[in-house]
């Protein structure tokens, strides 16, 4: 069984936010307005935050998405198992099961789970832009990055139809696919020959807030020498 992981090289990352837009479009994440953004209603599965990292004089721009923890604090507290850790290590959210209590959003130390305060809204002209592979979340449920899980399912189906095993390049989340600085690498952490596994062993590798015991599968590579 694969253990999907993502490595982000902060030394390469330029903070251009292409990943942010790619994620938004890929996953039908609705747009904000100045008012909603100011009231904490900005919907993002992936965003840039200014994180104070050890050894850096100023805050670094850190692309922050669901850290896909192996010990996720969010899944423990869900009263209905709407969020759970799937066998491949992806923290999934089952929208029809979610009651919208927002306990998971509060338990997550990374604050990466977002809640649908209102029904998602696109201008009529923009509705066809939505990705039919990803559902539209109704109002009142929590959502978060799934490592573009729909792409895994599609890739697996394509590979099976072609009569082969899934190859490393078959399944790449939208953020990784677009990263112009090639700062993001995605793959199977359980495969010792994968690039992510190699990078995860780099002396620059760290997991954010790993002291909390969350065991994230998003691994950052430190900036600087």
């Amino acid at each position: 069984m694969a253990r999907w992981g993502l490595v982000i090289d902060l030394d390469r990352c330029t903070g251009c936010q292409a990943c942010v837009v790619a994620c938004k479009h890929e996953n039908n994440v609705p747009f904000s307005t100045p008012e909603t953004a100011r009231g904490g209603r900005l919907m993002t599965w992936l965003q840039l935050v200014a994180a104070d990292l050890p050894g850096r004089p100023t805050a670094s721009a850190l692309p922050l998405m669901c850290q896909q923890c192996d010990r996720p604090p969010c899944t423990d507290v869900c009263p209905t198992s709407a969020t759970y850790l799937n066998p491949e290590g992806i923290v999934a959210q089952i929208y029809p099961r979610c009651i919208g209590c927002r306990y998971c959003t509060n338990a997550c130390p990374y604050a990466v789970k977002v809640f649908n305060w209102t029904a998602p809204d696109w201008p009529d002209a923009m509705a066809p832009m939505r990705n039919p592979d990803v559902s539209l979340r109704p109002k009142g449920v929590v959502e978060t990055c799934t490592f573009c899980h729909h792409r895994l399912i599609a890739a697996r189906e394509r590979a099976r139809a072609a009569g082969r095993e899934i190859a490393p390049d078959d399944y790449v989340p939208a953020c990784v696919a677009t990263c112009p600085a090639e700062a993001m690498v995605f793959g199977d952490l359980s495969d010792p020959h994968s690039e992510v596994a190699a990078l995860a062993g780099s002396p620059r590798a760290f997991r954010w807030m790993e002291e909390l015991g969350t065991q994230p599968k998003v691994i950052y590579l430190r900036e600087g020498e």
Partner: peptide, 8 residues
């Protein structure tokens, strides 16, 4: 039987 295999 993983939920996320069908739920999207």
């Amino acid at each position: 039987e993983d939920c996320a295999a069908c739920h999207r």
